[in-house]
Design a protein around this nucleic acid. Sequence first.
RNA 1: GGAGGAUUCGCAUAGUGGCCGAGUGCGCACGCUUGGAAAGCGUGUAAGGGGCAACCCUUCGCGGGUUCAAAUCCCGCAUCCUCCGCCA
Length: 423
Amino acid sequence: MIDLRLIREQPDLVRASQRARGEDESLVDALVAADELRRASGVHFDTLRAEQKVVGKDVARATGDEKAALLAKAKDLATQVREAETASAQASAQAEELLLALSNVVNPAAPVGGEADFVVLRQVGTPRDFTQEGFTPRDHVELGQLLGAIDVERGAKVSGSRFYYLTGVGALLEFALVQMAMEQAVAAGFQPMIPPALVKPAAMQGTGFLGQAAENVYRLEADDLYLVGTAEVPLAAYHMDEILDAASLPLRYAGFSPSFRREAGSHGKDTRGIWRVHWFDKVEMFSYCPPEEAAAEHARLLAWEQEFLGKLELPYRVIDVATGDLGSSATRKFDCEAWIPTQGGYKEVTSTSNCSEFQSRRLSIRMREGDKIRPLATLNGTLCAVTRIIVALLENHQQADGSVRVPQALQHHLGGREVLLPI
RNA sequence: GGAGGAUUCGCAUAGUGGCCGAGUGCGCACGCUUGGAAAGCGUGUAAGGGGCAACCCUUCGCGGGUUCAAAUCCCGCAUCCUCCGCCA
């Protein structure tokens, strides 16, 4: 959630942000009105309650007729207090609901527009020219079959569409990638974490996934729990309701977890293979830092993502995602898109978002600096989304005979294999 | 799943209807003391909302209820601990 004071004092700024996102501007005015009502009804309740306390103490001291008279007054007050309390609670709940519905204010540096209005920040590496090399590249499904690494048919048989098995060297490849990602993260000072993949509503709500993104979240009705779509959720909620010592910041966690996504809005999109699936494993970076350091931390997260892709020798580009395509928590987002030969284009393999104080306000995570207590910033970034990296690796490093070259940095995590051979 | 116990200000605890938003110890901060430190002594030390401020209000796991008045009584739920059962 954003700061109510910002909405009170600079509603135009928030309106402009909503417009840039393509979201409802009138929410801002509704919120301003709801906030006024909340404060007014709060003052009314406070006043009555203070009076009730005074009278209550008088009752305890009084005797005889005086006590009877005071008791009558107190009873009358009690009714009024109850009514005022209900009204105040309702007004607060109303304001809270609107506040939770409002997305974070976008960073002015983010390009304004829809999904296609991103800005390419840089391009790294050069896509291979398979025509010049004299063969037609196979896609990851075909390569996965040749190598005995991916079984999508049986994934569908057992669990339905968008499920898969990683088999043989495919399974080993996941372990190798995860190990490599964790090693890098630890070297950079991250604390490795294996968080729960099922979380309570407060964690999901607090990270901002129950807004427009709600339709993509799996919910376990019987237990009122959610399956996380990213380790970002349990890593953010880890410090829920805590006040962190400013001297301990930044706190950096690298979480390994399964990621579950309903893919509700993407029927018919990327249906082949394991590019877009309902479940995959992922190593996610997560930072807590002072708000004024968030932009620098964001740049660092991006640099770590690039370091990882570099070690995998993948050609990719970095884009500054447009305002209309930001998650509700993010003020700014950078995606790394790897070149996917059989798609003839760059496609998202990592994503890093600066959520400023949006999540920490919702989750009630603050920092103590001397005698000052204030919200802090949270940021997240993908280090390794296993299935997408596997797709990129197989397709980019394939050879004419269907074998796949293993990038040097990954070799020792795969028992020294320099190449994956068809079975 | 069954039985019992617990949940209070960073930690440990006191508190069984009004003098309790709440005492004590530890920790922490500042001051005194000291050549310096420790010890000792003194003062302060939860969060949130409203207000220029004085100050007021909310919160004693969460949600209801009883009462003029609830940390305290009643009901429901959650979490943790112990024992039993089952189990990767």
